[in-house]
Design a protein around this nucleic acid. Structure first.
Length: 547
RNA sequence: GCGCCCAUAGCUCAAUCGGAUAGAGCGUCUGACUUCGGAUCAGAAGGUUGGGGGUUCGAGUCCCUCUGGGCGCACCA
């Protein structure tokens, strides 16, 4: 609801009277230069070819047929190659602001998702160490995507999938075992491919404390269970510190114990897409566009990773998620094709693009001008916890969200740590704190502001007009960000809008102004405060009343 | 060798479905505080959108190609 329905309908009517097809849906956009007007339409240019007329001439014809009152506009001008620029009638802004305030924390939300269930899987770190910065980016991204989907009417399930068995976990157990024995005075090396981080030594010490009967760490199974449990707890603490929660933790091992892996293999075989070669069982993924076939069951009888992956996604489908979104690092992009192909080969009615993937590029951490290598095994990587402790949750979230996921991210710890104006999150939060300050100092309850019976036509500064337009764009922005699964659009919008707020705040005083100015500006302040607060909440960032 | 992603101001990044004069922040330079917070604001400088070709009324955006970077290409996960 951005108040353009009337204008779009009127444009469509005018165009149809000139011979345009009955199903056209004219698009409106904000002109780059605000002096052109409030809205612009390229309708005449898109219709010029099919109707065989010159764009500007067609634009003129459309404008002549417009009923300004019905469209809610005060002017329509033709510009450039055939744009039509509109100015909105003043009361449209006023009504928009009142509706905004009445909606309050619901402003910007919609119901396009129609309460359909959607599963969003993210982080999904294996319990072999603390969460690193890459997981941090994924946590911020996934959490914001969930918030956007929820805000647009989807019923969201946040899911964390992890591998609690297999070779990696065995290495983990053996690494702890080696450390236990070292602490007992023995000279032993860590296993090949083992984990070298300090946290392994901590785990070993705690294992000794809790398992006095197994001083030499002979019980590998107990070591494994202990290490997985402790590292899961540690990851949960990291996530909690980051303010991220999950609804479902899904264990890979459960796919084996409940027979789903075998079931999946059987189904693939009976669907006729497999063959045996060199003692292994292969899936003909090339039938579905892969560049070569993939092994499902190795000659030693165990399955390759992608079989449980496929089985896992079958459970998502069978749990009723017609839509599933996976947020993953781009280093896993090769799984995209394989999981989808595996699901197709099952031939159980799962659509081709299932699941959807949001891939994010790698994070490079810079400290003191040098790259800090991220490696679980080296144990010298930067963890999510490190970042939160150093720069705070809000700044970490914002840093991870301010960029498109598909570009690489340089996280400069030194810059992020400096609590200065280099951190854009403070700029946004400051705008919110300033608005809150108006109400605090004026001893006015912001909840009492409704805009009803207030003449908003006195808000005639250009800064006020621009700010109002930005605030009324918010619902469209949210809808677009949710649809494209791009939270960075919200971050960019909030930064822009905060700029408009600072500008207005600097130019226009609120308190101690004549009554009609005071009342109108309080409405604008309240509306701005609500938009900032709603937007920040979607990104998981606090909106402080004072800083 | 093959596949995916990226390349925009000195640096880090935006740019809504292909729209008008490509925008912010930082950094640099010049300015603004008796008011509700100077963590702010105003102004200036800074660009052949990596190179080349194509598509069209119009290309940072789409197609081809080259260059440069990241990631992935095991009967590892």
């Amino acid at each position: 609801m951005d108040g353009t329905e009337l204008l779009r309908a009127e444009l469509a009517r005018a165009a149809q009277s000139l011979g345009a097809p009955s199903d056209i849906e004219p698009q409106l956009e904000r002109p780059r230069d605000p002096s052109f007007g409030d809205w612009a339409s390229n309708l005449a240019m898109t219709l010029a070819k099919p109707l065989g007329r010159k764009p500007r001439e067609l634009a003129q014809a459309i404008v002549e047929r417009l009923d300004y009152a019905r469209a809610g506009i005060s002017s329509a001008e033709i510009a450039g190659p055939g744009f039509i620029n509109f100015r909105v009638a003043g009361d449209v802004f006023a009504e928009g602001l009142r509706a905004l305030i009445a909606a309050a924390d619901q402003y910007g939300r919609s119901n396009v998702g129609q309460a359909c269930p959607v599963n969003v899987e993210f982080v999904s770190a294996n319990p072999t160490g603390p969460l690193h910065v890459g997981h941090g980016r994924q946590a911020a991204l996934g959490d914001a995507i969930c918030a956007l989907l929820a805000a647009t009417g989807w019923r969201v399930t946040r899911e964390f999938y992890y591998n609690d068995g297999g070779v990696q976990i065995l290495n983990l157990a053996l690494s702890v075992q080696a450390r236990v024995r070292q602490l007992g005075g023995q000279t032993v090396d860590l296993p090949e491919g083992g984990y070298h981080g300090e946290y392994i030594r901590d785990l070993a010490q705690r294992y000794i404390d809790e398992h006095s009967s197994d001083a030499n760490a002979e019980d590998v199974d107990a070591l494994r269970r202990f290490a997985v449990r402790e590292l899961r707890k540690e990851q949960d603490r990291d996530l909690q510190a980051f303010g991220v929660h999950f609804d479902v933790y899904f264990l890979e091992s459960s796919l084996y114990t409940d027979g789903r892996v075998d079931q999946t293999v059987d189904r693939l075989i009976s669907a006729g897409h497999t063959y045996e070669k060199d003692g292994a069982l292969w899936l003909k993924t090339t039938d579905f566009g892969d560049d070569k076939d993939r092994v499902m069951r190795k000659s030693d009888g165990t399955y390759t990773y992608f079989v449980p992956d496929v089985a896992y996604h079958v459970t998502k489908w069978e749990r009723g998620f017609k839509r599933a979104i996976n947020v993953q690092g781009a280093d896993h992009h090769s799984t995209v094709t394989r999981v989808r192909v595996g699901l197709q080969a099952l031939d159980i009615g799962i659509p081709e693009g299932y699941p959807e993937y949001v891939l994010h590029q790698m994070v490079t951490v810079m400290r003191s001008g040098e790259e800090v290598k991220i490696s679980k095994r080296a144990g010298s990587y930067v963890t999510v916890r490190d970042l939160i402790d150093e720069v705070g949750r809000d700044a970490v979230r914002y840093f991870f969200l301010m960029r498109k996921g598909d570009s690489q991210l340089v996280f400069d710890v030194d810059v992020a740590r400096s609590q200065s104006d280099e951190n854009p999150v403070y700029y946004i939060q400051m705008a919110h704190a300033r608005l809150s300050g108006i109400f605090r100092v004026g001893e006015i309850d912001p909840e009492s502001i409704t805009g009803v019976d207030v003449d908003l036509s006195v808000l005639e500064l250009s800064e006020e007009q621009e700010l109002m337009k930005a605030l009324l764009d918010y619902p469209t922005l949210i809808a677009g960000a949710a649809q494209s699964l791009e939270p960075h659009r919200v971050a960019t919008y909030l930064h822009d809008t905060a700029g408009k707020i600072h500008l207005w705040y600097h130019k226009a005083h609120v308190l101690n102004e004549p009554d009609e100015i005071l009342r109108a500006r309080l409405v604008l302040a309240r509306a701005s405060q609500l938009v900032l607060r709603n937007g920040l909440e979607l990104l998981g960032i606090t909106a402080p009343e004072r800083m």
